[in-house]
Design a binder for these strands. Sequence first.
DNA 1: GTCCAAAACTAGACCAAGTCTAACACAACT
DNA 2: AGTTGTGTTAGACTTGGTCTAGTTTTGGAC
Lengths: 132, 132
Amino acid sequence: MKEAVKLLRDSGIQLTPQRTAVVESVLESTTHPSADEVFEMARRKCPTVSRATVYNTLNLLVEKQVVRAQILREGTVVFDTNMKKHHHFIDDETGTIHDIPWESLEVRGEQRLDGFDVREYQVILRGRKKRT
Amino acid sequence: MKEAVKLLRDSGIQLTPQRTAVVESVLESTTHPSADEVFEMARRKCPTVSRATVYNTLNLLVEKQVVRAQILREGTVVFDTNMKKHHHFIDDETGTIHDIPWESLEVRGEQRLDGFDVREYQVILRGRKKRT
DNA sequence: GTCCAAAACTAGACCAAGTCTAACACAACT
DNA sequence: AGTTGTGTTAGACTTGGTCTAGTTTTGGAC
């Protein structure tokens, strides 16, 4: 949060009330919100913020590497505030997305793929979360 | 192809010219086509086929497990005719999707995830394909 | 403080992927 | 032939997202 603000300011980007609302909204959220969900949250903080500004700001955050855009749901991009490498588990029933720590899975062979230069990878798991 | 036709017929589904065009189109394609790409291919075989029929038929094929729907591209589902377990590599520059054989990667730990019942998983890799 | 240019914002138009609906076509059964 | 069910079509609709034109805000020069 603090660093995000700093990073944006250092990039010569003005921190307007609208942008602050968007940045706070997405960074506060513990789930993996879609742009529209961020829009709703931001609206509560700053009722005049427009959809365009939400999309612009989110794309700016992706560009500045404050959040990551992930393709995990049909039809919509979700935003991920966890910038550490990790995998994703998607609940079949609810569609909820859970972060899986990088260390809990071991993947081998990705540097030995013939003809492919792997820049990054992640495991996408699907199934059911056990209620505890 | 042959089995697909049989499977559909056995499920009590009439093989109309429109459906045949869709089934042939998707099964012939070596890439990972979107519904719209299938629509175009199918149109060439059967010019009267409508978008609705393409979507209906593709969803039918997914239901009958003739093809798989994959969330790999922003904004659109793609269809995968390779029903064997495999991973995916996405070229950063072209967006082209490549199948990676299941055996060329080794993943461990997915059954030991605390609180998660994993039904299926795959590795999504991104980077650049070397031109050979 | 005033003025100007640049940056930011908004509403709404637009676009693309996908679903839904109402009307029509056609087969199978009586 | 009439009825029922399955299939198809065009087009309306919905949703996620981008683009645009016009307005507001801001920061700097004076």
